[in-house]
Design a protein around this nucleic acid. Structure first.
Ligand SMILES: [Mn+2]
Ligand SMILES: [Mn+2]
Ligand SMILES: [Mn+2]
Ligand SMILES: [Mn+2]
Lengths: 219, 219
DNA sequence: AAATATTTTTAGGCTTGTCTAAAAATAATA
DNA sequence: TATTATTTTTAGACAAGCCTAAAAATATTT
């Protein structure tokens, strides 16, 4: 239906608009897709012709419902494949994204449905991101950043704000995985570092750089 | 490493050379890939430049070891994915090929290895075709066509010569699946039809058109 | 062997997706 | 507000992969 490239553009625009920005500008897209602004303009015109997004010269773009549907479906496939790679093939959570970037473009609705069923209808991917439903609904998670959480609440590690392999590998190294529970015991104004108590009374320190990329849910 | 299209060309040339033909001619490739002879010539030149095949004008092509390796690896991925779709996702054997045509181009050696392990190192795909090993070795099956088999031998249904969905669906309809055993009770010279006895003494007739596309192993 | 038919290659062109360099529009600063 | 800086778009070009039409080579008939 849509090309590998078109899907990647739509997915990128979708993700940028999720991050607050209402109208997405050319350079931001080029940055994410590691391409040139001129190429983005070329593609934007084609996607606008196909009614996948609204475009006004110099004013940026916004997805149409049609475009958003394609984008969300691509995200759905991406996250389902990540579940498959993680749960079934035992890849690490730092390894799944790159392969899913390829698998997300496999075009077969029935395959996606059967994969979903095979995985027992997962709601979140290995990084804690929600998996859109078949009809495009995403249950928004009410996660907060660890650096914004208050002391004396039980927090459940639920996701990451930084999806890079290096960050995920660092979390592996310090044994921080989805599901662990913690309570903040100290927040240091000076450097933004945070001390927490884990279950079993073990304590642990997070630097600001780490704490600002960990998503937690208040239990 | 190699493009979707390059892999398909190499796979096609490989399969044609497996079917006896030593040097593969342009039209045969065009026929399989549903493209034009001129396009085949274009691509052949590029593959020859990359040392994936040997090419002499008007003399046809033959894969180099390098080209054969790429082709066999593509076949390996194709058949492993078919096993996944059939065994794990419960697709019918008439449905797996088309989706595997897409999946075979996913480029990740570790993914292929992990998939192989997840499937418990299958030796044959859902159609009875052998799965090449990681280092490119294919265990040749000594299957024969049902129409060439002799009476009074126990035959095990082991593969198909026709991989089209319509043929596979016909086999579904008459309940012919891999593994069933039979003995030929009658071979009719006139129309090439064959009568067999199945386990449980049920008898069954195969038209020539069907019998010439069923592969059996003598038990 | 000459004529005819078939196969294969070449020539030229099209689409998709990319690029660089330059022009135009917008935003920021003096 | 005028000048400068940044962003965005246009212009022109290129590679991959495909096409049609015509030329060249090979194969088959007569
Ligand atoms: Mn991902
Ligand atoms: Mn992608
Ligand atoms: Mn197949
Ligand atoms: Mn293929």
């Amino acid at each position: 239906m849509y090309s590998y490239t078109e899907e990647n553009y739509l997915k990128t625009i979708y993700k940028l608009s999720e991050q607050g920005n209402d109208s997405i500008n050319t350079n931001a897209i080029a940055e994410v897709l590691q391409t040139k602004a001129a190429s983005v303009t070329d593609m934007i015109k084609k996607l606008a012709d196909k009614k996948l997004l609204n475009y006004e010269k110099y004013k940026g773009v916004a997805l149409t419902d049609k475009g958003r549907k394609v984008a969300v479906d691509t995200v759905r496939k991406h996250r389902l494949w990540e579940c498959f790679l993680y749960d079934k093939l035992k890849f690490g959570w730092d390894e799944v994204h790159e392969i899913a970037e390829q698998l997300e473009h496999i075009n077969s609705e029935i395959l996606t449905d059967k994969l979903d069923e095979f995985l027992d209808f997962p709601t979140h991917d290995p990084h804690g991101d929600p998996i859109p439903s078949k009809n495009g609904v995403i249950k928004k998670s009410n996660f907060i950043l660890l650096c914004d959480a208050k002391p004396n609440q039980t927090l459940v590690m639920s996701g990451v704000a930084d999806h890079t392999a290096v960050f995920l590998q660092h979390l592996n190294k310090i044994s921080v995985v989805l599901g662990i529970e913690m309570q903040i015991t100290e927040k240091n104004e000076y450097d933004g570092s945070i001390a927490v108590k884990l279950s079993g009374n073990k304590s642990m320190y997070f630097s600001k750089d780490v704490a600002k990329n960990i998503l937690v849910k208040v239990k």
